[in-house]
């Protein structure tokens, strides 16, 4: 079955609600309206207003209530209208939810999900990729799928997981990409990266929308006999250290590509992992391609300038290949 990225997520949540009565959804405008991006479209008719709850505009209350419900054994799925607003609930997530199992042994099986990312001219408050705020919070799992198959398998895995999971849906991908999704029930394991393209010359370590950017660049570079290997991390916390080490061991050269800004970004952490695990296998410098160290600007030419592009991957790959 060919599904859009959005439809895959929607189907994943729907099937989990169908399967498990302890799953319920809460968030702003998710009921009759079906959510700002329609991920929960039609859910209220099927599952009723008790399990598809429209909340006040109160992100801390949404996370707090989801957490409280999870303590009674429920599996809440809370929607952020945009992931940019997750900062409003930061304390609940960082100090309440993330620390709970470590400190007092209570599991918090909840999912916080919503659209993130740029390329849609959403401006500084509707384009961010705030996953790093949570990567630096032990106790959370942070998931950023790139394909419909992974999106469905990972949202199901997140709902079934006994830990708090933050699920970043890339809004640029929502209706732009389609992919094969099996009709049978399946999950994609959290914490496992995936080689989406095998290659021998250099590795691109990336995730979410940037996987598609890397794939486009790989097509162009293939004509020049530069063979990219692309590792899709799928989960950014916990990171799949083995997969990162393995691809570097194989190609000996690596570019880390992400959409969020550079300083304190994921590339720094991955570079450190490479340094710790496979330093001797490197035949060139670790290269970073990232967003700029600024807010995401609104105007399309500026946003284009801010965000990583296919040309950037092509240029840096040529340079690194020649190193």
């Amino acid at each position: 079955m060919q599904l859009t990225y959005l439809e895959a997520i929607r189907q994943g949540i729907w099937e989990e609600m169908d399967r498990d009565p302890s799953v319920f959804c809460l968030g702003e405008d998710i009921g009759i309206y079906g959510g700002a991006f329609k991920v929960t479209d039609g859910f209220i008719d099927r599952f009723g207003p008790e399990r598809v709850i429209d909340t006040p505009i109160a992100e801390s209350a949404i996370v707090g209530a989801a957490f409280g419900a999870s303590l009674t054994g429920m599996r809440p799925v809370a929607e952020f209208q945009f992931m940019d607003f997750i900062g409003c609930a930061f304390n609940q997530i960082s100090n309440m939810v993330a620390k709970t199992h470590y400190l007092w042994g209570a599991p918090a099986p909840l999912v916080l999900r919503g659209p993130s990312g740029g390329y849609v001219h959403g401006g500084p408050f509707h384009s961010q990729n705030p996953e790093m705020w949570f990567v630096h919070n032990p106790g959370l799992k942070v998931i950023c799928p790139a394909t419909p198959y992974d999106a469905k398998g990972l949202i199901k895995a997140a709902i079934r997981d006994n830990n708090p999971c933050i699920f970043f849906e890339h809004k640029y991908l929502y209706r732009r990409i389609k992919g094969e999704v099996p009709a049978d029930d399946y999950v994609v394991p959290i914490g496992k990266a995936n080689i989406v393209r095998e290659g021998r010359d250099l590795s691109i370590v990336t995730y979410a929308a940037m996987v598609h950017t890397a794939l486009e660049a790989a097509e162009i570079l293939a004509k020049e006999n530069i063979d990219l290997e692309i590792l899709d991390l799928r989960t950014v916390s916990p990171l799949d250290r083995e997969a990162i080490a393995a691809t570097v061991k194989k190609t000996n050269k690596v570019i880390i590509l992400h959409e969020h800004s550079r300083t304190g970004g994921l590339a720094g952490e991955i570079a450190a992992i490479i340094n710790e695990e496979v330093f001797d296998d490197l035949d060139g410098p670790i290269v970073r391609i990232t967003g700029l160290d600024s807010a995401v600007p609104f105007s399309p030419p500026q946003e284009h300038h801010y965000l990583p592009k296919v040309e950037d991957v092509v240029r840096e790959s040529r340079r690194l290949k020649a190193y």
Binding site: F24, G64, F67, P76, N91, N95, T100
Partner: peptide
């Protein structure tokens, strides 16, 4: 529910406990 130091954050959490129980 274990408190955290940040004041006020328990209030929505306890509300969520009541919500979870009510769903049950």
């Amino acid at each position: 529910v274990s408190p955290i130091s940040m004041l006020g954050d328990l209030i929505p959490v306890l509300s969520g406990v009541a919500l979870g129980a009510r769903l049950q």
